[in-house]
């Protein structure tokens, strides 16, 4: 088993679901983690579940782009230069086009997509990133690859993220900064529990049955993310890696 051996990794969305599971996994591999999310209480809950206590909590709303510079200053002051970034923070709205308001689409794009651009921009600055190289992971979704009614906004935010990753990977390869995205299928998390409450039972069963291996766990995704952040993945960049129990290949 590989070890992240003191690597400093920033995890957004660490207060819940997939981001929390990843923070826990990264700490088990001896990484030092900066946890970002709006809800400080839930960030502290994540911290209490992590190995080692040398991590750093930074409550922040990622929609406040003007705060990023200051935040990164605080993070590097606390932790030193960073080796990894993973953007789990995201919003999932089930919105038929008819019901879609521009503001609500903008909010989803702000958190899922524009925050990723701004995070990468600040993360890759000379003062913030390890000179030897680094690894960045964006969290996409199978909704970027497969269509479904009422998911055009969400799917678009994730497909755009995958598109960004391809070109950013080229842009930063010379600095040995690898940039990939991970596209999970349906995983049981609080976000999904909420979504499922708005759906009729037969729709929920349909989602579950569409995954040949069944639905996933947050730990399944955390394992893949940890691998991409490690030097074991040193030849992987610009890729979108699907992890979906077979959802996207099943007919």
């Amino acid at each position: 088993m590989y070890d992240l051996d003191g690597k400093k990794i920033l995890v957004t969305g660490a207060s819940s679901g997939l981001g929390r599971a990843a923070a826990i996994k990264l700490s088990a591999l001896n990484a030092k983690v900066c946890l970002i999310g709006r809800d400080e209480t839930r960030l502290k809950e994540t911290l209490s579940l992590m190995k080692n206590k040398n991590h750093f909590i930074l409550p922040a709303d990622l929609k406040n782009f003007e705060e990023y510079e200051e935040s990164f200053k605080r993070i590097t002051m606390e932790m030193g230069k960073l080796d990894g970034l993973v953007h789990f923070a995201g919003i999932h709205k089930i919105l038929p086009l008819k019901a879609m308001k521009v503001d609500s689409l903008k909010e989803m794009l702000d958190v899922n997509l524009l925050a990723f651009f701004e995070l990468v921009k600040h993360f890759t600055k000379k003062n913030n990133v390890n000179d030897a190289g680094a690894s960045i992971v964006g969290i996409s979704s199978v909704a970027s690859l497969r269509g479904a009614s009422a998911l055009s906004g969400y799917g678009c935010s994730k497909a755009a993220l995958d598109g960004a990753v391809r070109s950013l990977a080229c842009e930063y390869a010379s600095k040995n900064i690898r940039i990939n995205s991970v596209a999970p299928g349906f995983v049981k998390t609080p976000l999904n529990d909420n979504t499922m409450k708005t759906l009729p039972q037969e729709a929920v069963d349909k989602i579950i049955n569409a995954h040949p291996l069944g639905i996933g766990t947050p730990e399944d995704v955390a394992n893949l993310v940890a691998f991409l952040l490690s030097s074991e993945a040193k030849w992987i960049t610009g890729s979108t890696i699907i992890i979906d129990g077979g959802f996207s290949i099943a007919s």
């Binding site: 038929p96 019901a99 879609m100 009614s149 009422a150 708005t198």
Partner: peptide
């Protein structure tokens, strides 16, 4: 089937 979602969003 989408009307449900439209009303819930409204």
């Amino acid at each position: 089937s989408l009307s449900l979602l439209v009303i819930l969003s409204m």
